[in-house]
Write a protein that binds this DNA or RNA. Structure first.
Lengths: 83, 83
DNA sequence: GAAGATTATCTGCCATAGAGTATAAAGTTA
DNA sequence: TAACTTTATACTCTATGGCAGATAATCTTC
């Protein structure tokens, strides 16, 4: 399932969801991605100033990929912005 | 058109393509995104340690959005990795 | 090929990410 | 509720992003 994300907070939420879906702990993911567990915790928490390569490492470790596309009028996940 | 990206370098290339497609200079985009022209230059160049919020600001300024999805076996743009 | 526009780099400065290491706080299960 | 696991925070230190401000290098165009 493709997840539209518009903020670091949403990115973190998606990462967490997929990590749990794969039954991995933050420590597991950290090891795979080559970062520290505390870093995983922060990125999942939506750290805005996280580094791009750190994010990419985490995505790769979860077998996720990124698609960039022109903004669509209104996507379903807009509702998430309310929370 | 949706663009699959797997590295900061590819992200930078996509940003540059869209920026030019909208006939904007780096300075224009910088102003819209609230960053410096030098920063735009670096991110388009593929700076791996760029900050997440900086990237998001640039994407938003170009009316682009990000989708995170499970990795597909082999996407067309894999070929781009050769260059 | 000179002028003008655009992009790439540089210096100084400050803020902070993430490593390393550790512990506190939450959650989970027996 | 004690024991264990998982996640959130803390502290020091080093590296570097991005701002300010500016200039060099590289296109464009006439």
């Amino acid at each position: 399932m493709a997840e539209l994300v518009r903020s670091p907070k949403q990115i973190g939420a998606v990462l967490r969801r997929y990590r749990r879906g794969q039954n991995l702990t933050q420590a597991d993911l950290a090891k795979r991605a080559g970062v520290r567990q505390s870093t995983v915790s922060q990125v999942e928490g939506g750290l805005e100033t996280a580094k791009l390569n750190t994010l990419m490492d985490m995505l790769r470790a979860l077998d996720l990929e990124v698609v960039i596309q022109p903004r669509t009028k209104s996507s379903h996940s807009d509702i998430e912005d309310l929370f």
